[in-house]
């Protein structure tokens, strides 16, 4: 597990069926671009989160391909439709093979 990588998501606790909600996600990750050099002049290899997906009850909401131009601590804000109560699942994929996940329940109001 790449060290210190923590995902955070902001999802409302409840919504009416059919409501549109705003979701924000942030994950602490250096996003080493592969452009920087170390003190000896060698390129520091690229090591980034390369993909982010959000799903609700198994259906896809958004699927993002990230390149090194995404800033450190990748941040995304997007909108989802909530057809029923259930669980949002968020997944981040690291170049080094690690996968970070977090989930958030949402109730019907």
């Amino acid at each position: 597990m790449a060290s210190g990588v923590k995902p955070r998501v902001k999802v409302p606790k409840s919504a009416a069926a059919g409501d549109i909600i705003t979701i924000k996600t942030l994950i602490s990750h250096k996003m080493e671009s592969g452009q920087r050099k170390d003190d000896d002049g060698n390129i520091i290899p690229r090591s980034i989160i390369n993909r982010f997906t959000a799903e609700f009850n198994g259906q896809n909401v958004i699927d993002v391909v990230l390149e090194p131009a995404i800033s450190t601590n990748p941040f995304f804000e997007f909108e989802a439709v909530v057809p029923e109560a259930g669980e949002f699942k968020f997944t981040w994929y690291d170049d080094d093979g690690d996968v970070y996940e977090t989930a958030k329940q949402i109730a019907l109001s």
Binding site: K6, R8, K10, K24, L26, F75
Partner: peptide, 12 residues
């Protein structure tokens, strides 16, 4: 506080 990446440090 969600948008503010400084709060990641607070959480740590």
């Amino acid at each position: 506080d969600f948008d503010n990446p400084g709060m990641l440090g607070v959480e740590n």
